[in-house]
Nucleic acid binder design. Sequence first.
DNA 1: ACGCTATACGTAGTCACGCTACATATGCAT
DNA 2: ATGCATATGTAGCGTGACTACGTATAGCGT
Lengths: 107, 107
Amino acid sequence: MDANDVRGHLDGLLLAVLESGPLHGYGIIEALQRRSGGALQLPTGTVYPALRRLERARWIEGTWSVVDGRKRRTYSLSPAGRKELARRRSEWVRFTGVIGTVLGGGA
Amino acid sequence: MDANDVRGHLDGLLLAVLESGPLHGYGIIEALQRRSGGALQLPTGTVYPALRRLERARWIEGTWSVVDGRKRRTYSLSPAGRKELARRRSEWVRFTGVIGTVLGGGA
DNA sequence: ACGCTATACGTAGTCACGCTACATATGCAT
DNA sequence: ATGCATATGTAGCGTGACTACGTATAGCGT
């Protein structure tokens, strides 16, 4: 699967990962990779800007900390982010329903 | 559902519609709308260029005709297009599997 | 001491691809 | 004659993820 196919679904993926608990950018990238069985290997240039965008939208909150001498920005899901995640999930169901139906082929 | 979300899946949708039989651009737009229960209302500026692209890729073949005094370009699925459609369908299954798993929420 | 890798964050510019807005033309109903 | 449905097409735009960098610390091997 081409990593470009996450277009339009990236925000939902990031929110979903953070639902399990606060995590920092680098850890989020690894979590996506792990959860997708290796399919999603998103570059930092994709994830970091997206996280800042989600933060500006108040869906996640970030706090700086230092772990092992390295600066980290740890993000956690906000109540608004939780609502947004739910919205993204129902949108995903609708989306796959529509495309799947038209695409057919036993789908 | 935002029509922009078809990004990356448009070709498959068009090929799928043509699987039922030859059809012209305008008819394809209507078929997409009908099959999707009204969700997919793709503008001509999206569909026509896409059809030309699919034709250049040899996945569909177009022939001009005149019906009721109006010029029509009727497209039909080529053998290569049928193969491509199958490929798109398996990609779709993989895609929804990956995103759905990561997105979670009972998906 | 030096280089390499993993960890960790970030920006600038590019590119793909669907959309908006527009242009063109015929048939039919009011 | 005016407007709407039918029918095809192009030019330019915008969105959003990507590529390619740049920065910095820790830990390991040599």
